[in-house]
């Protein structure tokens, strides 16, 4: 990465690079604890610092800088093709980027030494199209990664999965297969599957936009509850009601760049930028 050339743009103080300072005692070591202790450092949970990304000649992301602090809910919105999905996928390294730096809980994700599977296991992700594993029962969907990645026993993983299913109101469906559930139910299972890994942060990429309108509410309810419990969340969504209700920060993106960021009242109430205004009037109708 060419990140060393980038000026520190983050408004919050730079986190102590715990991982680099003492290998083996960094945040990754807390992986198996039920509740990760509050890190000694007070840096942001996610720091996105001057990130640019190209697909060939086409620049998808242009110098994006933003951060998500612990317990914060950040909503990312913007028109189709503005790079929201790309940005959120960069956060858990599902997509590589060519310039800038992203740290998650103090770990630089583009660092070659970073164990990406381990890092990703602590970052929950919910996709637009659910991406439950259709050949596995709901129970197995919930326990697969717990067993393979966290090394939990089958009993332990299934108990944890069942508890989370109950939390999203789907305990009775444990034995079914994803194809037998409605879209809203599948998305709630997907959220439960991510939570089963005890994530330190949750990423959502348009979790409700593939749903029939009558199912949007049940998924948003789960997300609102999660936010109220203090989960750190980065949410790409066009659900501005959700943004107003639970977001601490709204980030508006256009053409691969972050145009403005602020409280929901600032960005949704009286946006400074003309582009934000025209987008909002289009979404609200």
């Amino acid at each position: 990465m060419t990140s060393s050339a980038m000026p520190p743009v983050s408004p919050v103080p730079e986190p102590q690079a715990a991982v680099d300072a003492a290998p083996g005692t960094g945040p990754v070591g807390t992986l198996l604890t039920e509740r990760p202790p509050v890190p000694a450092t007070t840096g942001p949970m996610i720091a996105i610092d001057g990130v640019s990304k190209w697909y060939g000649d086409f620049q998808v992301l242009t110098n994006c800088t933003t951060s998500v602090t612990k317990g914060e809910v950040v909503v990312v919105c913007g028109p189709s093709g503005s790079g929201k999905s790309t940005l959120i996928k960069c956060v858990n390294a599902l997509e590589p980027f060519q310039k800038g730096q992203i740290t998650v809980d103090g770990t630089k994700i583009a660092d070659k030494k970073t164990n990406l599977p381990k890092l990703r296991s602590r970052v929950g992700m919910v996709f637009q199209h659910f991406e439950l594993f259709p050949h596995l029962s709901i129970t197995d969907n919930l326990s697969l990664a717990q067993r393979k990645v966290l090394g939990r026993s089958r009993d332990e993983a299934e108990a944890k999965g069942l508890a989370l299913l109950e939390r999203v109101g789907l305990k009775a469906h444990a034995h079914k297969f994803p194809g037998q559930l409605s879209g809203g139910q599948q998305q709630r299972v997907a959220i439960a599957r991510a939570l089963a890994m005890n994530p330190i942060v949750m990423l959502f990429d348009e979790p409700t936009s593939a749903l029939d309108p009558e199912m949007v509410g049940e998924v948003l309810d789960v997300m609102v509850e999660l936010a109220r419990e203090g989960m750190t969340m980065m949410v790409v969504t066009h659900e501005l009601g959700f943004a107003r209700e639970v977001a601490d920060t709204v980030v508006y993106m256009d053409q691969g760049g972050i145009v403005e960021a602020g409280t929901p009242a600032e960005v949704l109430g009286g946006p400074r930028e003309a582009r934000t205004r025209s987008f909002l009037s289009a979404v609200i109708g």
């Binding site: 296991s121 991406e131 439950l132 594993f133 990664a145 393979k148």
Partner: peptide, 17 residues
Amino acid sequence: PKGQGAAASALGLTYWQ
């Protein structure tokens, strides 16, 4: 679908897993 691999990676599964 590509999303299946992405979902598996996002859960922390390695390539072989």
